[in-house]
Design a protein around this nucleic acid. Structure first.
Lengths: 358, 358
DNA sequence: TTGTAGGCGTTATCAT
DNA sequence: ATGATAACGCCTACAA
């Protein structure tokens, strides 16, 4: 059976103009929320447009206005890189949501593209042509490619290496401060002295910064800390589980395991449970990001909240601003992170403030 | 301090042509992965492009080829509709991921836009102009608007009302079958006779279908079932919690609570726990979707897996196919769902098959 | 292999 | 308030 499908040959402004008895200029005026036409004309034009199912071509419009009304978001997708499991996908999803919100609010749309294994460079330049500006999430592309990209279109770096990383606008979260805060809490409020840090991918700026904050806290407490993280879990749940498993086989249980993100902490929790090691009784565990699952695991995870949606929002706002004024001063925004105390650190739902008071 | 920012005035094909000593036609050829030029020319052109930081304008290209190389994804965002909490955001995020993957694979990009309270119609038509085709997630727009949209651009419905819903292509999951499967499992394998269904938003096609499947299972077992769900939780965790809370105050604890999605089931679990009602001991609880958190709650949630990424993938594949051949036969795809047995139903990690064997 | 030139659908500048 | 009419930056026959 051959089902007839309504063929929609896209109509043009000319047809609308003819049908409504005006010039294309007038049609353009009523569509471009401009002014300079009577109410009657407006209705006629809108009516004709509706009848023809016409919507102005974004391409033609973009060409004429030299503005596509689209901002791109480039992020890395590691889901095919060996691991069957995605690497902190929730983090990226939140950023996407934030970006979408800010863009829509500004009357723009957002184009998303995940750079995978090899296609990165090519993909990046493909989307660069379609957008007015680009926000590039950390580890989406090699630095050289990012530099080249920035030579073709306004680029804002997201969650990348802080400062000195070049001449681009940059939005990020205070990873260092957040990590330092959890570690300090563990040390000061729970008396931990023997801690270990479970790091993410070695080239993750986030992981690097968090480790730096962790070290700073230890240093401040006069506790020796290794120069490099002793444990590595690739930011995934299974990676975190494996790392802790291995640790258990090699050394005594520490006072606390400070994890580079929530997924790894959750993985840690599960192997600790399987090994019948009590959390937080025998060892405290903390995460980073504050993804939804942190509230559901047992015990609820103490972690550091990162304003993920805001990161996305601020990033597109930054590109949009730069698109409007390419000569503007370079922007560098660091959003605050917040210690979220639950049970896995040893607290019983007390807030940080209550601890301070005690 | 006024930091100088590298101003990137976008260059054009003309400048590249001049700089590399060829015509614009040749430049176009080497960019459009076409053929018809010597290796030497190619290098010269590419070099000039790189030096100028030139990438072909998507707008100009789209206008000339009558193809933007972009497909749009429209989804609803309920996060501002009173509830502070998002409604099953994870579901949408997965679909976005799938859509992105399929689009990138096809050499296209995907534009995302969330329809909120009022902006819906306007937003939809705005993105319609920027894309070659549109996948519209259920409840993004009133039916009338969808119909109007489809009159302007190829539209594929995602997770919407099945069949008869008009003349659009449609991709969905077997919600009915999945719901029927869990319910049957509860009845046949766990001897439940007194079940209740916790529904989502009343106009959610997914919720409707799941309830229908639930009823079918009861009917098949000779159990009376109400025509309409007795409990409603708006697909959110807090909504699910409230609904179960209310239920507890009004009637005896049932044998099982079949939830319309995982978030509500998780909410149910938490109030049940607070009320010291044992799951699955006193009451079984099941979810739908199989989001990540289902594995972390206690007890792990028995649920129905829905291939969320695949939904997104298939949907963009469908639009892309339709863009290529507007006269093609209408497509209607229903992806299979899968019963995922964990502990909240009363099973001890047994698979469905093992139950069948027993 | 390469160049010429018309056209793609809008917007915007001048006129009127 | 409305109409002509150049751009806008690229693609693609058609020629050479």
């Amino acid at each position: 059976v051959k089902e007839p499908h309504p063929v929609v040959e896209r109509s043009t402004i000319y047809e609308v103009a003819r049908r409504s008895g005006v010039s294309t200029a007038t049609v353009s005026r009523v569509m471009g929320n401009g002014t300079g036409f009577s109410a009657a004309t407006r209705e006629r034009v809108l009516g004709a447009a509706r009848e023809l199912g016409w919507v102005p071509s974004g391409s033609a419009r973009g060409l004429a206005k030299r503005r596509a009304g689209i901002v791109g978001l480039l992020f890395p997708d590691f889901s095919e890189s060996g691991e069957a499991e995605d690497e902190s996908p929730l983090y990226v999803d939140q950023i996407i949501r934030g970006a979408e919100r800010a863009a829509t609010l500004a009357g723009d749309a957002v184009l998303i593209a995940a750079t995978r294994s090899a296609n990165g460079r090519e993909l990046a330049f493909s989307v660069a042509g379609k957008v007015d500006g680009l926000v590039v999430l950390a580890r989406s592309l090699p630095d050289a490619d990012v530099a080249a990209l920035a030579n073709s279109v306004p680029v804002v770096l997201l969650a990348s290496r802080p400062a000195g990383s070049g001449t681009h606008d940059r939005i990020g979260a205070d990873n260092r401060g957040g990590a330092q805060a959890v570690a300090r809490h563990l040390i000061d409020d729970h008396g931990c002295r023997n801690l270990v840090f479970l790091a993410g991918p070695s080239l993750s700026p986030d992981s690097l910064e968090r480790f730096a904050g962790y070290r700073a806290a230890l240093r401040a407490a006069g506790i020796a800390a290794p120069r490099r993280p002793s444990l590595t879990g690739g930011f995934t749940e299974s990676g975190g589980a494996r790392a802790v498993q291995a640790m258990l086989a090699e050394r005594p249980v520490p006072d606390a395991i400070v994890c580079g993100n929530d997924e790894m902490a959750i993985g840690a929790l599960s192997v600790l449970k399987a090994a019948k090691i009590k959390v937080p009784g025998e060892v405290a565990v903390t995460g980073f990001d504050d993804i939804a699952a942190t509230r559901h695991v047992a015990p609820p995870l103490t972690t550091v909240r990162q304003p993920m949606q805001q990161l996305g929002e601020q990033a597109v706002r930054a590109v949009l601003d730069r698109v409007r004024d390419r000569g503007a001063e370079r922007r560098e925004v660091v959003l605050a992170t917040e210690l979220v105390i639950r049970r896995s650190c040893g607290c019983r739902s007390k807030t940080r403030r209550e601890w301070a008071a005690a």
